[in-house]
Design a protein around this nucleic acid. Structure first.
Lengths: 210, 210
DNA sequence: GGTAGATGTGTACGGTGTATACTTCACCCC
DNA sequence: GGGGTGAAGTATACACCGTACACATCTACC
């Protein structure tokens, strides 16, 4: 337990670096996460970071985890906006839509964070299970799994069609997010993009159904 | 017209740089396309590149265009493997499948080229039409458009469902390719990935149908 | 209260992209 | 066919990057 005023050499430098990284990545994306830039913005020497992170990649990974939390938070907000007293099948469907549209909407409104969360290659360790980052299940991925399971429970999706559905969904929304933020759809009219996003989500959900 | 033996200072340095870039990117991906590395591998001074490219980004863009040609070539090979005398609707469907699976298969078998072709952000100019790179329509994108139009002509896809279909398809296969090469599906068993790829493609095509 | 270990600093090295000035060479025209 | 001209490639330099290594500093514990 450290005191609040001038806690130690810097207090909790690790957390400060991650927070600064988050701030820098918001504008500027992953390329703004330079080791020197982040330490500079905290007012500390570049090498100080090496007491808390093995290298730049580890720092970026820590920021990415936080950014993924933000994605999950945005998705949850949309999911919880679905009225709880609706028809279960209808409700499950809308919650699945919220997962996909939440993912895409986050990418469009916070492209910097989205890039570090899901668009930076991180050469996963040899036997990492799919859907994990840095040893923990990606929260947005978990929300997707839950939403699909809800679909099954509500009878809106057969168990047979459930198999592999997470990768169909993730592929589609992830691909769209990439095309829309960095790819051939960047700089298109926002209203057009929003309509297209709904179309993509609805089409793949329709594809899942029997 | 330059002579073949020792043509000029270097002959056609621009083409040599692009070719070297292609070679380096094949292993190593986009990050292997350093301006110094490329010029070094041609045996020329770093700054020589500036006579032919405005900056590193322009060089990468030129390599990306070539890489996109390779993608289109791989897709065409698969498309042309579909027998020409089949039922038109069936044939159109299989050609559309070939577009998607060709895209994904290329990403898996040539991840380096795929990365520079479609995974490097290139901040498109202000009013670029969607689906273009460096002022030209991306050949793989054109193949996708053609395949979808064939579907309509063959009566396998209604005009209404045709609208926006290219973005549904591209999103899904692009997202899957990214997840499988750099994302949470990297290092998974190849047979598993191949099955999943077919599942993704079939599901979204099914989603397009009425 | 002294010491050991954790935390941050200073300095340095090799790498990068690129700006500027210089040299070399091919071509063209008189 | 000799000289000028502009294009192609070189040399040098700068700022920046990630990071290795030696050092200083401060905390916490015996």
């Amino acid at each position: 337990m450290v005191t609040e005023t001038r806690p130690y050499h810097h207090g909790d430098l690790r957390a400060a670096l991650v927070e600064a990284g988050l701030r820098l990545a918001r504008e500027g994306g992953a390329s703004a996460l330079g080791l020197r830039g982040v330490t500079r913005s905290v007012g500390v020497t570049p090498n100080a970071a090496y007491r808390h992170f093995a290298d730049r990649r580890a720092l970026v990974l820590a920021v990415a985890a936080k950014a993924q939390d933000q994605v999950a938070h945005a998705m949850l907000e949309r999911m919880n906006a679905i009225p709880r007293d609706a028809d279960p099948a209808e409700r499950a469907l809308h919650r699945l839509r919220a997962v996909g549209l939440g993912y895409i909407h986050f990418a469009l409104s916070e492209p910097g964070w989205f890039e570090v969360a899901f668009l930076t290659q991180d050469v996963a360790p040899e036997n990492a299970p799919p859907g994990t980052l840095d040893g923990r299940v990606s929260p947005p991925y978990q929300l997707l799994l839950d939403a699909l399971d809800e679909m099954v429970e509500a009878g809106a999706l057969s168990l047979e069609r459930r198999a592999g559905a997470e990768w169909v969904c993730w592929s589609a929304v992830h691909g769209f997010a990439d095309l829309a933020t960095r790819g051939p759809l960047q700089r298109q009219d926002r209203a057009f993009i929003d309509r297209l996003a709904e179309h993509v989500v609805d089409t793949i959900i329709h594809g899942l159904e029997a």
